[in-house]
């Protein structure tokens, strides 16, 4: 699904990623771990070009999205992202947060849709009604439908993060990238977010998760990747990865965190 070939990223003179190769298949749950400053977040942010890679390529949906000429917005619609600090739109209600992008994207493609589907003509209002229903269904799924008209500032961290997750789900992405989704949460709220992520995993969603939650990596991921000094030092299935680490830096890292 995503083919990363020799991905490089520098900030000024500092080379953070020094050539990363990895293939992410449909249905994979890839946990990315590493010390802070190892480049794991940069790697994730390069995958949807939130940071523009300085070298290498990222093949997604048949094109190299690291190429500055492709319309990155179109590809990001198929690649959701969940942030450490949620990044919900503060000036929008919860419902608007979820609906905004799907409604915008579908309304933009409305003419094309109506041309291709002569028997199923739609107006902007139809799209809004449909997306509102979908958004409410998603909210219901996480048990927050009574928060539909609340503003993000009134929610707890766990609620914000779960809404951020369904906001990216609303776009029906092929893959969701998680950038330390539980690191900014109070301990008692980590569980509810991980629970929702587990559900998604069980439904077959492809996920790439940068995390410090070793429990999640062990339990949910089918592959664990250790990034260190800008390269992938070790990659394995979770049991082997945690029980029998080969790279000395990984052994060191695991000794510290476990």
């Amino acid at each position: 699904m995503i083919d990363v070939i020799n991905l490089r990223k520098s900030f000024g003179n500092i080379e953070v990623l020094k050539g990363i190769d990895i293939t992410i298949n449909k249905g994979d749950i890839v946990a990315v771990i590493g010390a802070s400053g190892s480049g794991k977040s940069t790697f994730l942010r390069c995958l949807n070009c939130m940071e523009d890679p300085t070298g290498g390529s990222i093949m997604f949906r048949g094109v190299d999205i690291a190429d500055m000429k492709v319309d990155i917005n179109e590809h990001r619609q198929h690649m959701g992202m969940v942030f450490q600090h949620f990044n919900l739109f503060n000036n929008k209600t919860v419902l608007q947060n979820i609906m905004l992008a799907p409604v915008h994207v579908r309304c933009k493609a409305l003419k094309k849709w109506n041309k291709e589907n002569p028997d199923n003509q739609k107006t902007k209002k139809d799209i809004k009604t449909e997306e509102k229903e979908r958004a409410m269904a998603l909210l219901k799924r996480i048990g927050l439908e009574e928060k539909a008209d609340a503003y993000p500032s009134t929610l707890s961290g766990g609620q914000k993060q779960r809404i951020a997750i369904i906001r990216s789900l609303a776009m029906n992405p092929d893959v969701i990238l998680f950038d330390e989704p539980t690191s900014a949460l109070d301990p008692e709220m980590v569980g509810e977010v991980l629970e929702l992520m587990k559900e998604l995993a069980n439904e077959g969603m492809t996920m790439v998760v940068v995390t410090h939650e070793m429990g999640f990596a062990k339990e949910v991921a089918n592959r664990v990747v250790f990034i260190d000094e800008g390269v992938i030092k070790e990659e394995n299935e979770p049991r082997e990865f945690f029980e029998n680490p080969k790279d000395p830096r990984l052994q060191d890292f695991l000794a510290k965190v476990l």
Partner: peptide, 9 residues
């Protein structure tokens, strides 16, 4: 970043 991540320009 939140806006860009869902594919808005």
């Amino acid at each position: 970043e939140g806006g860009r991540s869902v594919g808005l320009s």
